[in-house]
Amino acid sequence: MSRRDTDMAELPPGIDAPVFAEPWQAEAFAMTLALHDKGLFSWSEWAQALSSEVKKPGAAADGHDYYEHWLAALESLLAAKGVAGKSDVDTIAAAWERAAHATPHGKPILLENDPGS
């Protein structure tokens, strides 16, 4: 973990360094907080779900995949609670991807733009 030969060396030292690399990471984070506020799960439940994801082998040493684990933890918790099953998420995610392809550049991507499979 020498700071010279890993990504740790490249971390911005500034106190206000950005914590989200991409917007979806911020959205996944915020959804988790909102669902906790709503009482859908306790913070201990969340910590357990996240912990079991980040403990899986293959986690990047530089932590860049952290929010991928975060998202996987959120999905597994929502599936376990019967709120959003994996197949439903798969189906709607595919619709979002098709909608993105069908949306002209510069226009907001809307799910209604999905031309269908």
């Binding site: 991409e22 996944a28 959804m31 959003a84 998420v89 979002w96």
Partner: peptide, 28 residues
Amino acid sequence: NELDPFAARVRALETILTQKGLIDPAAI
């Protein structure tokens, strides 16, 4: 215009959770 798989899954969760009244996109 392309959503990477992670972004698409986050949007899918947002869609489901909003439909179920569990989250409000503005609050997010």
